[in-house]
C-alpha cells in the first residue's frame, strides 16, 4: 500500500503545468535582470527551485526530477559549477587574471548583442542553485513518498537496515 504525503489535489495538479513554466520564465527574467539591477543567478535559481518543488509536490518527486534539465539534479548542479568555472578562463587569453570578466558587442547584422562572460558565470550560479537545492527539496519530498525515484534514496533503505541491525544487536 503506497502512502502519499498528501492526497491528490486535482486543482493543483492541473494548474501546475502552466505555473511551472511561468515561474521558470520569471526566474530567467530575474537572472537576466541581475546583470545591472537587483536580481541575479542565486535568487533566480531559488525561484526556479520553487517551480521544481511545486511540480514535485503536485505530481511526485520522480516526475519533477525527470523534468529538470539533464533529468538529474546532480548533473544540473555540476554543469552549473562547470559553466561558472569556465567563465573565468577567457581572461587568461587576454593576459588578465582568472575571473577578470570580458565583454564585447556581438554583431548580429540587424543589431548588436552585448555579450559578457559574467553572464555565463551568473547562469552557472543559477543552474548550480537550481540543481543543488532542488535535489535537497525533492529528496525531502521523497522521504514520505514511496513513489519517489528509487535512485534518489538508494542510501535510505541501507541506513534503515543498519538501524534494524543495530536494534537487534542491542537486544
Amino acid at each position: 500500500m503506497k502512502r502519499r504525503m498528501n492526497a491528490r489535489v486535482v486543482v493543483l495538479e492541473t494548474v501546475v503545468a502552466p505555473l511551472y513554466w511561468i515561474i521558470l520564465a520569471a526566474s530567467v527574467w530575474i537572472l537576466l535582470r541581475g546583470h545591472n539591477e537587483p536580481g541575479g543567478g542565486f535568487i533566480g535559481g531559488l525561484v526556479a527551485v520553487g517551480a521544481t518543488v511545486l511540480w514535485g509536490a503536485a505530481r511526485g518527486p520522480s516526475s519533477a526530477r525527470h523534468k529538470l534539465p539533464f533529468g538529474d539534479p546532480v548533473l544540473l548542479a555540476a554543469v552549473g559549477v562547470l559553466a561558472s568555472a569556465v567563465s573565468g578562463i577567457p581572461a587568461w587569453f587576454v593576459g588578465a587574471s582568472y575571473l577578470t570578466h570580458q565583454s564585447f558587442m556581438l554583431p548580429l547584422g540587424f543589431t548588436e548583442l552585448w555579450v559578457s562572460t559574467v553572464m555565463l558565470f551568473d547562469a552557472g550560479v543559477y543552474l548550480c542553485v537550481w540543481g543543488a537545492v532542488s535535489g535537497f527539496g525533492l529528496g525531502l519530498l521523497a522521504i514520505d513518498d514511496d513513489a519517489g525515484d528509487e535512485g534518489a534514496d538508494a542510501a535510505a533503505p541501507r541506513a534503515r537496515a543498519t538501524t534494524k541491525a543495530a536494534r537487534r544487536a542491542r537486544r
Binding site: A77, V81, L82
Partner: peptide
C-alpha cells in the same frame, strides 16, 4: 603578469575544482 603564471597560481583550486565537477558529471 604572464598568462601561464596566472594560471599556475590559480591551479591549486582550479584543477581540483574542474576535476571534481567532471568526476561528478561522470558519476554513472
Amino acid at each position: 603578469m604572464t598568462v601561464p603564471m596566472s594560471m599556475l597560481i590559480t591551479s591549486p583550486i582550479f584543477v581540483p575544482l574542474l576535476t571534481a565537477v567532471l568526476a561528478t558529471l561522470a558519476y554513472r
